[in-house]
């Protein structure tokens, strides 16, 4: 199998102040394994996996402002290819090659 079949190219954008937790950089390009193992069972990579991956690899500070329990903190909006993740199965959405995932915090003052 070629490399491109094992990995997915994912673009991640942060907004609404969340970028401050990620080196103050709004846009990130990632390579994510297409298949992951969870509790020694193989499965395709989903948004939940991406969120943990971001926390473990890109998050620079105050992880409690990004995650709570096993998902993003309430008040953070997620868009999958410009669609509300609530319409796409939220954390269970299976990542596809060239997906664009946007995280926007609503928590900062107006």
């Amino acid at each position: 199998m070629s490399n491109s079949e094992n990995f997915l190219a994912i673009r991640v954008e942060f907004g609404g102040g969340l970028e401050l937790l990620f080196s103050n950089q709004r846009s990130h390009k990632l390579k994510i394994p297409a298949n992951i193992s969870k509790n020694s069972v193989g499965k395709p990579a989903d948004i939940d996996y991406l969120i943990h991956h971001l926390r473990d690899n890109l998050l620079k500070e105050r992880k409690e402002l990004f995650m709570e329990k096993d998902t993003v903190r309430p008040g953070i909006l997620v868009l999958i290819n410009d669609t509300d993740w609530e319409l796409e199965g939220e954390g269970d959405y299976i990542l596809q090659n060239n997906d664009e995932i946007v995280f926007i915090s609503t928590l900062h003052g107006g």
Binding site: G15, G16, G17, L20, L77, L79, D82, D84, V102, I104, S105, T106, H108
Partner: peptide, 14 residues
């Protein structure tokens, strides 16, 4: 926030 995002409005968030 969704409206600002889809309309690409310019706002400050710190």
């Amino acid at each position: 926030v969704m409206y600002a995002y889809f309309k690409k409005l310019d706002y400050f968030s710190t």
